[in-house]
Computed example of a mutant assay.
Amino acid sequence: MSELIPLQQPAPAPSLPAGTVIRCQRVQRGQKLGKARAVVLGRFGEGERAPYRVWFYPKGPARPGDDATVSLSFPHEISVRGQLAGLSESQLGRIVKGSNGFSDAADVWRLASTLLLQKRAQRAG
């Protein structure tokens, strides 16, 4: 008689904080547009399988709607690339500008603003 081997459940992915730089599938109006860089804005719902709200910051200011740069991405679709702290001053400046005024991006705006000021202060000596 053969033994049944229990299926291994994958370990849950650690929760990604706002400001995590990722690469994931971009979907707009139900159409896949390929993978692109994005930054995590936060979780959309509860639980380890809840999607993340992400902003495809190279595509323009954070905005919902028909020309959205903000979308949802499920944990299994995400590849982590780093944190905002690893971005250049110019990239942080674009993130600060593009996230300003979009309430769902408030945590990213605060973090990017702080990092930008720190980088400028370090450069100024």
Rank of each mutant, 00 (worst) to 15 (best):
R49H: 14
Q28V: 02
W109S: 06
D67F: 13
I5Q: 13
V108G: 05
S88M: 05
G93V: 09
P51L: 13
T69H: 04
Q83K: 09
G47F: 04
Y57A: 03
D66H: 09
L4R: 14
I5S: 07
F74Q: 08
D66F: 05
K59I: 02
S2N: 11
F74D: 05
I22S: 03
L116Y: 14
K32V: 01
F56D: 07
L84Y: 09
P75R: 08
K59G: 04
F102S: 09
L115W: 06
L116D: 10
K119T: 00
W55K: 08
A36Y: 02
A124T: 02
K32T: 01
A50M: 14
G34I: 12
S15D: 15
L33C: 10
G34L: 09
P17G: 05
G65R: 09
R123W: 02
K119D: 04
D107M: 00
K35P: 09
G65P: 08
L115N: 03
Q31A: 08
E3S: 11
K35I: 11
S71C: 03
P14L: 12
F102R: 10
A11G: 07
L33Q: 15
G30N: 06
L87I: 04
G60E: 14
P64W: 08
E48G: 14
E89M: 14
R29G: 06
V54M: 01
P75H: 11
A38R: 00
G42E: 04
L84K: 07
Q122V: 12
D104C: 07
V27M: 07
G47S: 08
E77F: 07
Q118C: 09
I95D: 04
R110K: 14
I78V: 13
S2I: 12
S88I: 01
R53V: 10
D107R: 00
V70K: 00
P14E: 15
P6H: 13
Q91F: 04
K32S: 02
G47Y: 06
V54N: 05
S99E: 12
L117C: 03
E77Q: 15
Q8S: 13
V54Q: 05
A85I: 06
I22P: 04
Q83T: 11
A112P: 10
A112F: 02
L92C: 08
C24W: 11
D67Q: 12
K97D: 06
K32H: 01
V80G: 04
R43K: 15
L111H: 12
S79D: 13
R81M: 15
L116H: 12
P58C: 04
